[in-house]
């Protein structure tokens, strides 16, 4: 499905070719395309609205997805102006692929938290409780950022979690816990906050061993370097930071 979406995205600029130049000449409206990690969806949607309010005639359009998917799409020529990654590894990948225009800036960080269904039916109180055989635990696969963070936490704590499933993304982990299929999962602090009353969060001290840093950068392919830089500065600046903190993100 994602591949199809990517293919369609590639067709979009073709379809827009004829009208593009005229639109720019007639209307002062500008559109900024921001490709951002899925975990930023709520925070960035609000930041985007505020940025639009602060800049007349500017529309911010978001594409949210897994960071590595987004890098792949940008590499294949997706029409993006700004890229915000959920980890430095994927930003490094983008830098290596020479698609980044500016210098990446770290703008937020996130740590893991244990998530359980409301009422915590399996009585999970610590990271150690996840290693027992009785509780069904889901984590992210080590190949994706949240799973890499989980592996670092396990290593730091000297524990080994025996998951019943290694999911593709943090939202999949959250989904399995919300539906009650799993007794516990490891997700980001921001995910627990975002899910509200549908879940119960259990913080654990070892989480500090795996801090995920979020970098943002404007892309080489942008048509409006000033606007792209304006957005990244806004995210790094006080307005962006205050929105991010209300969604549970910590300072980088």
């Amino acid at each position: 499905m994602r591949r199809l979406a990517a293919a369609l995205l590639l067709l979009v600029p073709l379809a827009g070719c004829s009208g593009g130049a005229r639109d720019q000449a007639d209307a002062p409206e500008k559109t900024l395309h921001v490709y951002a990690a899925a975990s930023l969806q709520n925070a960035f949607t609000e930041i985007g609205k505020r940025f639009e309010d602060a800049n007349d005639g500017v529309t911010v359009k978001f594409t949210f997805g897994g960071s590595s998917d987004l890098v792949a799409q940008i590499e294949q020529g997706a029409p993006a102006d700004v890229f915000a990654s959920a980890d430095t590894a994927n930003m490094d990948k983008a830098v290596k692929a020479r698609v980044i225009g500016g210098v990446p800036q770290n703008f937020a960080s996130n740590t893991l938290e244990i998530v359980t269904p409301p009422g915590n039916p399996a009585h999970i109180e610590s990271l150690r409780d996840l290693t027992g055989r009785s509780a069904k635990v889901v984590v992210c696969a080590p190949e994706v950022p949240c799973g890499a963070a989980a592996a670092r936490v396990e290593e730091a704590a000297g524990l080994r979690i025996k998951p019943v499933s290694e999911e593709q993304s943090v939202t999949d982990v959250l989904g399995k816990v919300i539906s009650g299929e799993a007794d516990a999962g490891l997700v980001y602090v921001t995910d627990v906050l975002g899910a509200g009353a549908k879940v119960h969060g259990v913080t654990f001290p070892e989480s500090r061993q795996a801090v995920n840093t979020y970098p943002i950068a404007s892309l080489r392919s942008t048509h409006d370097e000033t606007l792209a830089a304006g957005f990244t500065d806004y995210v790094v600046g006080p307005e962006g930071q205050s929105v991010l903190s209300t969604y549970g993100f910590q300072k980088p």
Binding site: S165, E166, Q168
Partner: peptide, 13 residues
């Protein structure tokens, strides 16, 4: 499969 069964090497992946 990914929605219903999960993903674990040798079991559901």
């Amino acid at each position: 499969t990914i929605t219903f069964a999960g993903s674990l090497e040798g079991v559901t992946r």
